[in-house]
Amino acid sequence: MAKWSTIKRVFSEDQQTDADKELQLRMLFLGSSFLAAIAAIFTAMNIAKGWWLMAASTTLLVASLLVAAILAKRKNALASSTIAAVVAGVVFSFYALSGENEGFACLWILMVPVFGPSLLGMRVSFVLSLYFQVFLIALFYTPLNQIVGDCYTATFLARFPVLYFATFGGVASLAVQKQYYLNKAVRQAYHDGLTDLYNRAYYVQALEKHAENDFSLAVFDLNRLKYVNDTFGHLAGDEMICAAADLLRDAFEPDGMVARIGGDEFAVISSADADRLFDQLARFAESTCSWKGSFSEEACLLTLSAGWVARGEFPEYDLEEVLREADQRMYRDKADWYKNSGFERR
């Protein structure tokens, strides 16, 4: 069960970073452009030999791959890979059915499991490869083989499907392993190990991405973490940090991206409007006050100081000035909290 859950997670997880998305788009663009050029060469060869039906199919392949390349250039990865997969399925099936050239059938269909995971992405490539498995079984191992019985040699009919299944099995296994370790490395690079929130590296990237957009930024700092660490131990402090992370996640997702940006510091980048954000802040404050740690029965032990700023408040500010304003508001709130609560700051 553990292996199946791992495979399912590999196929269900989306690309986690902008860098991964850019890499897939670049692969789609370069791969589609390269295959379009190869298909154009075959089109010229088919025209020269008078194979007009084959020429028409390769022309369709050229056009669709160019469209896929254009969509990849415009940052639409799913549409690009889907168009390339659909047209590849139609055209490559035609090659296998026509039987005019065994080399075409071998070359094109075997390219799907070999290049599919890198070019089309795991999910689209898997669906296309699965289609060709069903297609080849139906074409070569059912009465439908009468359609191509005169087009292929008996050796080819017997060996080509086995070759495809072996290629698919081997490449799919390698692709799943590669994607699993890539996902794991990305998660470790962009997630906090203690809370599983996004970390500071991802937070910085997200801020840069939203720099020119209308967004809200809230920064939080745990109050009395040093007191908890010194009084109850660092495991108690970790429990409080994790509790704050869970409550922030519950309050602000899915509108906002929650990150742990320091030992006791958190941040939320939100697309919610001002009214909704105020409601979320109020709900979050209420939930922290009702939290009880396993190490103490003290009421309202979990409190966070907050500083919130909307990008639209300061259209003339650059991103660094917006961050500074949020920090200043948070530190004013922290100073007020310690003043009103009667606790010592250190």
Rank of each mutant, 00 (worst) to 15 (best):
I147A: 10
V148H: 06
C151Y: 11
Y152R: 01
T153G: 13
A154Q: 07
R159E: 13
F160G: 02
P161F: 01
V162R: 14
L163P: 04
Y164V: 05
Y164T: 03
F165P: 04
A166G: 09
F168E: 01
F168C: 05
F168T: 02
G169E: 03
V171M: 11
V171E: 07
A172M: 15
S173A: 15
L174H: 08
A175W: 02
A175I: 09
V176H: 07
Q177W: 15
Q177N: 15
K178M: 15
K178Y: 14
Q179Y: 11
Y180W: 14
Y181Q: 09
Y181T: 08
V186D: 00
Q188T: 03
G193F: 10
L194Q: 10
D196R: 13
L197C: 01
Y198L: 02
N199Q: 06
R200K: 09
R200P: 00
R200Q: 07
A201M: 02
Y202G: 03
Y202S: 02
Y203M: 10
Y203L: 09
V204C: 09
Q205V: 09
A206Y: 09
L207P: 03
L207H: 06
K209L: 10
K209D: 11
H210I: 08
A211V: 13
A211C: 14
E212D: 14
E212F: 09
E212Q: 14
N213Q: 15
N213P: 04
N213H: 15
N213I: 14
D214Y: 12
F215Y: 12
S216Y: 00
L217V: 12
L217F: 04
A218S: 12
A218P: 00
F220H: 05
F220R: 03
D221K: 03
R224Y: 13
L225C: 04
L225I: 06
K226Q: 10
K226C: 07
K226H: 11
Y227K: 08
V228R: 04
V228F: 05
N229F: 05
T231C: 09
T231H: 11
F232C: 04
F232L: 07
H234A: 09
H234K: 12
A236H: 05
G237H: 05
G237W: 00
D238K: 06
M240Q: 05
I241Q: 06
C242T: 13
C242R: 12
C242L: 10
A244D: 00
A245N: 01
D246Y: 06
L248P: 01
L248V: 11
R249F: 06
F252T: 05
E253A: 12
E253Y: 12
E253S: 15
P254W: 13
P254S: 11
D255W: 13
G256K: 07
M257Y: 05
A259E: 01
R260L: 08
G263E: 06
G263L: 14
D264T: 04
D264E: 13
F278P: 01
Q280V: 12
Q280S: 11
